[in-house]
Design a protein around this nucleic acid. Structure first.
Length: 262
DNA sequence: AGCATTGTTTCACA
DNA sequence: TTGTGAAACAATGC
């Protein structure tokens, strides 16, 4: 997906352009993306109301609806989702096809009374639209977590540090690319047991997390990280020139510098 | 043709 | 109890 940076962009698009507009029509027919799907359940919850706030923790968004006893609308971009409101786009920067918003890749759509729209464009179809999503297990948001909480939560486990960073219940928002990027920046081996990291290493990792996400936000996505283009066969460390090594950590393809993250 | 994929969930197993 | 690895999910890109 869309990691925390892309999701925040999407949330921001919604906040700026989709609030306080009367919802006139809803297409929730994709029963895989929209769930649980009791024919039109989502549609009837939204019709004649409006979105009044857009929130996010990690990679999960939820929208508040006007009116008493309204549910919230959960949005998750999955592996490839984008949010489009009128012409404004937020989310996964890969793939084209946005020139055809009526295609099968539009998995969910809201039309406003004023003629505008909000939609979820998702080629991979692993995104989710859901009423009252359960977000109670999510850890603190990666952009908001304090250094102290970061150290205690992330450093507590015997799991590999990368697996720990990817665990959304520990800290919410870090995905595979961002994890590789920040472990490389901080010169820490992704496979090291989290509990062997020193306090100063954890502090450095947290600082790096902030600079990486900030940087990615400026440049338009986590794919702009300096390590990312080198995560390929024969790739070398853009910092020291040593070979990059490919492995599997936390179930995900992992690249690290053979010299600096040995 | 075959494999990999910026994500999440589930399950068998150590 | 924790953690891991693999599989499943869906569909596209290389």
């Amino acid at each position: 997906m869309p990691e925390i940076v892309e999701v925040e962009t999407a949330r921001s698009v919604i906040e700026k352009h989709a609030l306080d507009r009367r919802i006139e029509r809803v297409d929730d027919q994709d029963s895989y993306v929209c769930r649980p799907h009791l024919a039109g359940e989502i549609a009837s919850a939204l019709l004649k109301r409006s979105f009044v706030a857009a929130h996010r923790i990690g990679k999960s968004m939820w929208l508040e609806l006007s009116g008493p006893d309204s549910p919230t609308l959960g949005l998750h971009l999955g592996m490839s989702g984008r949010i489009v409101v009128d012409g404004f786009v937020g989310g996964d920067p890969r793939f084209d096809g946005l020139d055809n918003l009526d295609s099968i890749w539009t998995r969910f759509r809201v039309d406003f009374a004023d003629g505008g729209y909000l939609l979820l464009f998702d080629k991979r179809r692993l995104g989710r639209v859901q009423l009252n999503p359960d977000l109670s297990k999510l850890g603190p948001d990666a952009l908001a977590i304090t250094p102290e909480a970061f150290r205690s939560r992330v450093g507590r486990s015997d799991a590999p540090i990368k697996a720990r960073l990817l665990n959304q219940n520990v800290i919410a928002g870090i995905g595979n690319l961002l994890a590789d990027q920040l472990l490389w920046e901080a010169k820490i081996n992704p496979a090291r047991s989290s509990s062997t990291l020193t306090k100063s290493e954890l502090t450095r990792l947290h600082t790096t997390l902030l600079s990486c996400t900030n940087d990615a936000m400026q440049k338009g996505g986590v794919h702009t990280g300096s390590l990312i283009p080198h995560r390929t066969a024969g790739g070398v460390c853009p910092r020291c020139g040593a070979a990059l090594l490919r492995s599997k950590v936390g179930g995900r393809t992992t690249w690290r510098c053979s010299r600096e993250q040995g």
